[in-house]
Amino acid sequence: MTQQNSSFEPIAILTNQLSEMGRGVIAMLPNIAIAVVLLGITWAVARFASQISEKITKGADMRQSLRELIELAVKFSIWAVGLLISGTVLLPNLTLSSIIAGLGVGTVAIGFAFKDVFENFMAGILFMLREKMRIGDYIGCDGIEGRVEQISLRETHLRKTSNELAVVPNSVLFKNPIEILTDKDKRRFELIIGVSYDTDLARASDIISKAVEGSDAIDQEKPIDVFATEFNSSSVDFRVRWWSGSEKRDEHVSRDAMIRTIKSALDREGIEIPYPYQTHTFKEPMKLASND
């Protein structure tokens, strides 16, 4: 008889525990109902606040991604407050200090685990707050060039001239210098032109200047510069500078026009653009082999 009673003891203990849990759940039903109602109110308030935020930001002169960030921040703030209130109703022993302490420890652990993610996230927020580098700008950074198609909280999409899409983490753009090539309507370009050493440099400079000034591929209102810059191995080099449109195609078109125009002008005047060559000097006279 004693053995039979001992075999039923675990079942009795489990039954008592389930009964106590059931009574606890029943006792918490009012709190659960209130917490659910609070969550419903939080959802409604967050939706209404998001609509109000959208109407306010739509009239402001800001990029779309920044408007989405503001709406997300409004929703997050309302939901954080709503969840905090619902949690204290559902668990009365839960205090604000314990929540803050738990969040502190959890934040440190999550921060180390998702360091790169948070770094890109913060960089994305800073990019959205900047006035520079807008959608449609052509930029270059860390060897990557392309037109900005999208700026999100984690990454930036650049469309290359070859139509490839480069997805660049925001932290890369934030840590490295960015060249915004289309920040202004006009940019200055330059080209190195070499002439032979027996050339009259003043005459060559005048010919190059007139050739550049007569081209339709450049901005005639901006200054044109022709400077003799270097004694090279087989030529004296001129640096030619002009202004044209800031788009990447404008650079290619104007550079092509300058090379063609300057080459034609120098050829007409008989001025040589020399090939690179080397002069070898020997200490002893060289003996040529005889054909005999």
Rank of each mutant, 00 (worst) to 15 (best):
T281K: 10
D198E: 10
E179M: 03
V108I: 15
E272G: 11
I85R: 06
I144C: 02
P30S: 03
L83R: 06
K184G: 03
I271M: 13
H157F: 01
D185W: 00
I180R: 01
V74R: 08
R268V: 14
K75D: 04
T57D: 03
G87H: 08
V36G: 04
D61Y: 03
P274A: 13
A257N: 13
G24C: 02
S290Q: 14
A60P: 00
S171N: 05
T107V: 13
E71P: 01
E149N: 07
A123Q: 07
G111M: 13
D237H: 09
I34Q: 06
D292F: 14
K75L: 07
Q51I: 07
N232R: 15
E131A: 05
F121R: 05
H157Q: 02
A217Y: 09
R241Y: 09
Q51N: 09
I100F: 15
I273M: 15
F112R: 10
E221G: 11
M28I: 01
R187V: 04
G140H: 05
K75M: 10
E119S: 13
Y197L: 01
I139Q: 03
P223C: 12
D198Y: 04
R187C: 03
L84H: 13
Q278V: 15
P223F: 14
L173Q: 03
I178W: 00
G245V: 10
T156V: 02
F227L: 13
L181M: 07
G111V: 08
P223K: 13
I259Y: 12
S234A: 15
M28G: 05
F227Q: 12
L191D: 07
S234W: 09
S264Y: 11
A204L: 02
L96F: 13
I32G: 08
D183A: 11
P169F: 01
F114R: 09
L201E: 02
S196P: 00
V105Q: 11
K175S: 07
G136N: 08
S19T: 09
P10V: 06
Q51K: 11
N170V: 00
E145G: 03
L288D: 14
C141Y: 01
I100C: 11
E190W: 07
S53P: 01
G245Y: 04
K287F: 14
V117K: 10
M1I: 10
T156R: 01
H280I: 15
M28S: 11
G214R: 13
I178E: 02
I99L: 15
V240C: 09
M62F: 11
H157A: 03
I271K: 11
P223D: 12
L266Q: 12
L29N: 02
A257G: 08
L181A: 08
S233T: 14
S152F: 02
R188G: 01
V25E: 03
E284L: 12
V45Y: 00
F121K: 04
K55N: 06
S246I: 07
T95S: 15
L266P: 12
D267R: 14
R67I: 02
E213S: 13
I144E: 05
E119P: 00
A202Y: 06
I135G: 04
F112K: 11
F231A: 11
F114V: 05
V212H: 03
L91P: 05
A33N: 03
Y275S: 11
L29D: 02
Y275G: 08
V253P: 07
T281G: 04
V226T: 09
E71H: 08
L90V: 10
F121N: 10
L181E: 02
